[in-house]
Amino acid sequence: MNLLNKIFFFYYREYKLNMSGIQDILTNIIFFFISIFIFIFSIGPDKETISFIGVGILWTLLLLSSTLSLRKFYQDDFENGNLLIIHLNGFSFGFISILKTFSHFLFVQVPFLLSIPIACILLNIANDKLFYLFASFSIGSLILSCLGSISSSMNLMNQRNFLLGSVVVMIFSVPVIIFSVGIINMEESFNSLINILFGILLIVFAINPWASGLCLKLSLENN
C-alpha cells in the first residue's frame, strides 16, 4: 500500500512539474508543426507527392522533436538531488528509470500522439491509415522513451557534448522507423510487423532498467 501511494505521488509530482512548465511541451509540438510546414515548403505543395512521402516525414519529425526534450529527462532531478531523495525513500535506480520512462511517455509522447490527426490533415494522409499510424506510434514512442531514458542517463555526467544523447537515441531508433513506416505502407502484413515492434519494445524494456539504473548510480557516485 505504501509503495502504491509513493508511486502515485511520484506521478503527481511529475504532473505538477510538467504542468508548471507546460510551455516546454507546447514548444515541442510547435516545433513539430513548423518543421512540417518547412518540409512542405521545401518539397512544394503537390498533393500526390506529399501524401506519398507523408508518413515517412511524419515519423522522422516525431522522432526528431521527441529527442529535443531529452536533455531534461533526468537532468533537473539529478542536479537538485531529488533523484537521491527518491532513491533513499526506497526506490531502486532501475525502478526509478521505469517510472521516469512512463512519465516521459505520458507527458511528452502522448501530446504528439494527440496531435497526429491534425498533422495527417496537413500531410494529406488518408483516414484509413490513421489507425495504423496510431498503433505504430503508440508502441514506437514507448520504445523511444526507453531509449531516451538510456541515453540521457548515460549523458548525465557529460558536461560538454549535449547532442550525443540525441545521436545515441537516433542510431538505435533506425529499426523502429523501418518497421513502423513499413506497417503503414504494407497493410497486409500488419500483424507480423506489429509483433516485431512489440518484440523490440520488450527487448528495450528489459535493457532499460539495467542500463539506466547503472548509469544513474554511476553519475550519483561520481557527482
Partner: peptide
Amino acid sequence: LSFENRVVR
C-alpha cells in the same frame, strides 16, 4: 573524448 570523469566515462 567528451566525459570529464574517467570512472563514469
